[in-house]
């Protein structure tokens, strides 16, 4: 069980607004996060990963406290080790496909399986600059999965994939999510994109101050 209650002030173009979320996510659940641009969806994921600190809040994951501003607990991103798929992919320009995965894990069998899952097994020695947008996005997903995270945070993870590839990949990911019992939060703008994958939704609205 993941229990999150956070408050974070956001600076936006037209002034300030507050990101306030109080929500529980069951183990192994897959939740779609949606809402208007600038409402704080990406910030919410980064707060969970430990990349941004909120002014107030508490995050507990399976009875382990990751964040509690009342008692000054704030675990580093390294200790939280969430899988994170960044909106801009954040691929390492100096590394090939295989090096991305080897940087994340030493398990060769798992790397081989991921490469097949993402259909990148014939491109192992390619650097990101030589991959298409869809291939780069798949690599970003595989790298996040490489650490076998308990919690996977995905920021617009399927935006660059063609419909056929998206459907196929989502089916494959469902199997992996279930197998590893991963709790997944997915930010998406596309209303129908995650049909059949998610079992819950979270709407983040923009509360102006």
């Amino acid at each position: 069980m993941i229990d999150i209650a956070i408050e974070k002030r956001l600076k936006v173009y037209h002034g300030r607004q507050i990101l306030k979320i109080d929500r529980r996510f069951a183990d192994g659940s897959i939740t779609k996060i949606y809402g208007p641009s600038g409402a704080g969806k990406t910030t919410f994921l980064k707060i969970i990963a430990g990349l941004i600190s909120p002014e107030k809040g508490r995050i507990t994951v399976d009875n382990t406290t990751w964040l509690d501003t009342n008692i000054n607990i704030n675990l580093s991103p390294q200790k939280r080790k969430t899988g994170f798929v960044f909106q801009d992919y954040a691929l390492f320009p100096n590394m090939t496909v295989i090096e991305h995965l080897a940087y994340a894990t030493n398990h060769k069998d798992w790397i081989t399986r991921l490469l097949i899952l993402g259909k990148l097994d014939t491109l192992t020695n390619h650097k990101p600059v030589h991959l298409s947008g869809g291939q780069q996005q798949r690599l970003a997903i595989l790298r996040a999965l490489a650490i076998k995270p308990k919690l996977l945070l995905m920021d617009e993870p399927f935006s660059a994939l063609d419909p056929e590839m998206k459907t196929e990949l989502i089916q494959e990911l469902k199997v992996v999510f279930k197998e590893l019992n991963i709790t997944v939060l997915i930010v998406s703008h596309n209303p129908a994109e995650l049909d059949g994958l998610v079992d819950g939704e979270l709407y983040i609205s923009d509360f102006s101050l």
């Binding site: 580093s76 994170f84 954040a90 940087y103 994340a104």
Partner: peptide
């Protein structure tokens, strides 16, 4: 360098 490069590395558990 995009901040997300280092952030991605941190989420993989790297110091």
């Amino acid at each position: 360098l995009p901040a997300s490069l280092a952030q991605a590395s941190y989420t993989l558990g790297k110091t």
